[in-house]
Simulated scan of single mutants.
Amino acid sequence: MSDNDLLSRISIDPNICFGKPCIRGHRIWVSLILDYLAGGTTIEEVLEAYPSIEREDVLACIAYGAEMVRDVFVELPLTKKKEASA
């Protein structure tokens, strides 16, 4: 399935969920699915939690996230390593 096919599974409607990107036909935010995946939840676990969506919907969320950051660079703060105490 191409990225365009996947991205067609995402909808943005200013009258639904405050215009946040959602899985088409659902009020499930793309960011919610990405948060789950980033937190270590597997695709299978997401599908169990949301039985009305399909694996391709989760892949569409990942594709959407990738597309959104393709030309955007966010500077991340550097953290200092703690020195070992003697």
Rank of each mutant, 00 (worst) to 15 (best):
S2G: 05
N4P: 00
N4Y: 05
D5H: 11
S8M: 07
S8C: 06
R9W: 02
R9S: 03
R9Y: 03
I10M: 06
I10T: 00
I10V: 10
I10E: 02
S11E: 13
I12M: 12
P14N: 15
P14Q: 15
C17P: 02
F18D: 14
F18P: 00
F18N: 14
F18I: 03
G19Y: 12
K20W: 09
P21C: 09
P21K: 06
C22R: 11
I23N: 05
I23W: 07
H26L: 06
I28M: 06
I28K: 08
I28W: 10
V30W: 01
S31E: 10
L34Y: 04
L34F: 06
D35N: 12
A38C: 11
A38V: 01
G39S: 10
T42V: 06
T42C: 04
I43K: 06
I43C: 03
I43W: 00
E48V: 14
P51Y: 05
I53F: 06
I53V: 11
E54N: 08
R55G: 00
D57R: 04
D57E: 05
V58K: 01
V58Q: 01
C61Q: 01
I62A: 02
Y64F: 14
R70Q: 07
R70K: 12
F73R: 06
E75N: 04
L76M: 05
K81H: 11
K82E: 15
K82Q: 15
E83V: 13
